[in-house]
């Protein structure tokens, strides 16, 4: 039974929360520019890492807000909790991942 640090309400028991899947799935700006295979990839294909995983959780029995959780799928440690509009915490990323994330963010700004 996890204990999760809701960014708004503080440390609360897992029973107050629901996990709603992988975080940072970027919805395509123009869905119609994608073929069916690409669109299906957006809809359904999720990563399933052994180790660090980024997830969306909702504090469903509390403030009802969604937020992001960086969780280790092996040890079940929660490495970070951050707001839904914030990027992956830099301290958890390798240099490559950080560079990659920066690229994604700048392309979002352009779009």
């Amino acid at each position: 039974m996890y204990e999760i640090d809701c960014p708004w309400c503080g440390l609360r028991d897992e029973s107050e929360f629901h996990c709603t899947g992988e975080a940072h799935i970027i919805r395509p700006e123009d869905p119609y520019a994608l073929d069916d295979a690409q669109w299906t990839d957006y809809l359904h294909h999720r990563s399933n890492p052994k180790g660090l995983h980024f997830e969306q959780w909702q504090h469903s029995s509390g403030c009802r807000k969604w937020f992001n959780v960086a969780r280790d799928t092996v040890t079940y440690e929660i490495k970070a909790v951050y707001k839904v509009d914030e990027p992956k915490p830099a301290f958890l990323l390798t240099d490559d991942q950080s560079a990659n994330q920066a690229t994604v963010e700048s392309s979002e700004v352009k779009a």
Binding site: C9, R12, D13, S61, G62
Partner: peptide, 10 residues
């Protein structure tokens, strides 16, 4: 105050 579960209700 706190919103939470009490028994099985919010």
């Amino acid at each position: 105050c706190a919103q939470s579960l009490l028994a099985k209700t919010n």
